[in-house]
């Protein structure tokens, strides 16, 4: 009896699915895909391959503690124009955001805190959805502000250090909040970004 009722239920589902109006592939919608999004093409792949190569080169430069070289390489990658310009595809935007976060982290290491903040702001302008990429930018910002706090405290600039500490805490809090959203979305308990 239980088998029969299950079969009936499955058949009803199958028929309902057959009868349903055409709609965009939910998997693609969930994946952040828009109906008018361009197809994955050579230009996109070329940019992504270039980005991969640059990041691997940066890995090597970092392994040798050649931070200036790493910054130079990443700067070449994030410098406009990117494929698609203002209407860059999600992949390009996300890789750019990730690269900007890395570059900001390196600038933070070099003590160029203002340059790092500019880079993070640029990344946040690209990664607008509440994705891991945006979350990472906030984490990097928190890290940069923490370094800034340490530097200011060392210079005995208490006021500046306190402000940097607050900025760091705010950025890290936002990073955690975004990460929670990402997890909720993955569990199906929150809307798409």
């Amino acid at each position: 009896m239980r088998v029969t009722s299950r079969l009936t239920l499955i058949c009803a589902l199958v028929l309902t699915a057959c009868k349903a109006q055409p709609s965009p592939d939910p998997a693609l919608v969930a994946a952040g895909c828009h109906e008018d999004a361009p197809a994955v093409d050579e230009t996109l792949l070329a940019f992504l391959s270039k980005a991969r190569a640059v990041h691997l080169q940066v890995d090597l430069a970092e392994a040798d503690a050649k931070i200036d070289e790493a910054v130079r390489l990443l700067d070449g990658l994030v410098r406009p124009p990117a494929p698609g310009g203002e209407n860059a595809s999600p992949e390009v935007a996300e890789v750019l955001a990730d690269s900007l976060a890395r570059l900001a982290e390196l600038e933070g290491q070099r003590g160029n805190f203002e340059a790092a903040r500019v880079l993070v702001r640029r990344g946040l302008g690209i990664a607008k959805g509440r994705t891991q990429f945006r979350g990472r930018l906030f984490e990097v910002l928190g890290s940069v502000e923490k370094r800034s706090f340490d530097a200011l405290r060392e210079r005995r600039d208490d006021e500046g250090a306190t402000a940097a500490k607050l900025r760091s805490l705010a950025a890290l809090k936002e990073a955690v909040s975004i990460q929670e959203d990402v997890i909720d979305r993955a569990l199906g308990t929150a809307p798409s970004p």
């Binding site: 690269s99 891991q132 990472r136």
Partner: peptide, 27 residues
């Protein structure tokens, strides 16, 4: 044709990217 789309689904939601490292693997 497969459209371009967010890459977020390629990554484990339960693990944050972190402030340092992992870019090469991600890209």
């Amino acid at each position: 044709l497969i459209p371009s789309r967010s890459t977020e689904s390629l990554f484990d939601a339960s693990t944050a990217f972190g402030a340092r490292g992992g870019e090469s693997a991600r890209v």
